[in-house]
Amino acid sequence: MDKFNGLSLEAHRIASIPQIENLMALHSYYHAANMNSNELTDIWSKEQPDEVSWQQNFGFWKSMPHMSLYYGEGHWDTGLALREQIIEARPELKDDLMQPDMDVRRLVEMPVHTLTTSIVEIAEDGMSAKGLWYTPGYALRRNYLQDTASACWMWEKYGADFVWENGEWKFLHIQIGMDIMADYGQSWAEPKPMGAPGGPPPAGGPGGPPPEEAKPAKKEAPVGKDGKKLKVAPSMGGGMACPPDGPGKYSVYSRTRIPTEYPKIPEPYTTLSETFSY
């Protein structure tokens, strides 16, 4: 393990801030491309597989095996099944969809969580860091079977712990607090449930099952142009591949919700064991 002291420690702490910003951006871009499994392999802690965790409105997953099941896996299977359905319903797309560089994971949806409003605190010992971001994001979803598209806003807070491992920063914990989920053209103050008429469509794929407070009103099998129902891909529509290890601690906006400090605002600190954890 690297140890820093004196001016080297200060240089390391200064240089670490843009490195942490880059790491967080890489998370966003991997996620937008549905490369969640690549993300877990490339930028999450390898030395603390039992300690890593992921928390969002509707649950808490601890350890890399659980995170992998919940967040990392399933996009390939979903994408392959979806591609099969699309080709069946719309054979004119077959040439495009069978191109060698077609990454079927991306057919599921395009969740873009942009990063703004950052606070990054590097521990005094230079071995960990904390960050908080606001993410005005959106998800673009296409129903290839019916040749339609939709987009919904997803505005969230990200709080994350990072650790310095073998000369690189890695994720250790992340907390995600979703404030807003509303279809474009709809007010977030009066959101409609996902899947309900006028509401955002159901979340697709294992990037996250629908939050408890916004579950689809009724799950319908996709319908092809000929009106026939088609089979549903394995994890489309929010099949939960791994039950949470604990409850979530945040909810989307409602008229009865009071603003809370979640995730917590980072403060200067000495070492990770002496402060709060995300």
């Binding site: 395009m110 873009v112 959106y138 673009l140 939709s150 053209g185």
Partner: peptide, 14 residues
């Protein structure tokens, strides 16, 4: 460009 749509209207991709 990933998305362009009129503000206040649903995105339809068309």
């Amino acid at each position: 460009t990933d998305l362009g749509c009129e503000a206040g209207k649903p995105f339809t991709g068309k």
